[in-house]
Structure formats: C-alpha cells, structure tokens
Lab assay of single mutants.
Amino acid sequence: RTRTSFTAEQLYRLEMEFQRCQYVVGRERTELARQLNLSETQVKVWFQNRRTKQKK
C-alpha cells in the first residue's frame, strides 16, 4: 500500500472537521471524502491516526 500525501487544502479541511467532531462516520465521512477527492478509507484512517496523535 502506498502512503497518501495529503494536500495543504485537504489537511486544512480534515483538521477543521476534527476540531468540530473527532469521529466522522456514515454520510458525513462519505461526503467529506467526496469533497476532498479521497476514499472513505483514507478519511477514516486519517481520523484514527489524528485521534492517536492527540492522545500522546
């Protein structure tokens, strides 16, 4: 599997969503992935990694 390189715009949007809600599921995840031109899996994993980073 190749590592995803997020654009600055994608990271900004993901961070904004994370500040709003640390868990994104269902339709929200589908819509966010579509808007950012990413897969739902990429969005899901980004949120998982971001929550892990916050715990440290």
Rank of each mutant, 00 (worst) to 15 (best):
K44R: 08
S39E: 10
F6L: 12
L14W: 02
C21Q: 05
E28F: 04
M16Q: 13
F47L: 05
S39F: 04
T41Q: 15
R13W: 08
L11C: 12
Q35N: 08
T4G: 07
K53W: 12
K55F: 08
G26S: 09
L38Q: 00
K55A: 14
L36V: 09
W46K: 00
T2E: 12
M16T: 11
Q22V: 06
T52P: 03
Q42R: 08
W46M: 00
S5K: 02
L36F: 02
V24A: 10
L38I: 06
R1K: 15
R20P: 00
Q22W: 05
S39V: 04
T30N: 10
N37C: 12
T2H: 05
K53V: 14
L32I: 04
T4K: 11
E40N: 01
Q54V: 12
A8N: 13
E17T: 06
Q42T: 15
L36N: 00
R50N: 04
V45A: 13
A8P: 11
R3I: 15
R1D: 15
Q54C: 07
K55H: 09
E31G: 04
R27P: 13
L11T: 09
K44D: 14
S39G: 05
L38R: 03
R34K: 08
K44C: 11
T41F: 10
Q22C: 11
Q35K: 14
F47P: 01
E31W: 02
S39L: 03
K55Y: 08
E40A: 08
T41C: 15
L36D: 03
K55L: 14
E9N: 02
F47V: 01
N37R: 10
R20S: 12
K53T: 15
L14E: 02
T41E: 14
L38E: 01
T52V: 12
L32M: 06
R51K: 05
T52C: 09
Q48E: 08
R51P: 02
V24G: 04
R3N: 15
A8C: 08
N49V: 10
Q42K: 04
Q19L: 12
R51M: 06
V45T: 14
F6H: 07
N37A: 08
N49F: 03
E40K: 02
L38M: 10
F47K: 01
R13Y: 06
T2Q: 14
K55W: 10
L38N: 00
Q10N: 07
A33G: 05
Y12T: 13
S5A: 13
Q10G: 02
N49A: 09
Y23G: 08
F18Y: 10
V24T: 11
E17Q: 06
R34A: 15
T2N: 15
E28T: 07
L11E: 15
Q42W: 05
K44E: 13
R27K: 11
C21V: 11
C21T: 12
T7V: 04
N49D: 12
T7G: 06
T7H: 05
T4D: 09
V25R: 09
R27T: 13
R50E: 13
L14P: 00
Q10E: 05
V45H: 12
R27M: 14
N49Y: 03
S5C: 08
V25S: 11
V45P: 03
F47Q: 01
L14C: 04
T7Q: 03
T7A: 05
Q35G: 08
E17A: 10
Y12V: 11
Q48D: 10
E15L: 04
T52F: 06
R20I: 05
K56R: 10
E17V: 06
T30R: 04
Q35E: 12
Q35M: 11
L38G: 01
T41L: 13
T7S: 09
Q54Y: 06
R50G: 01
Q42F: 07
E40P: 06
S39Q: 06
E15C: 01
Q48H: 04
Q42D: 13
V43I: 09
V24C: 14
R20F: 04
R34M: 07
R13G: 08
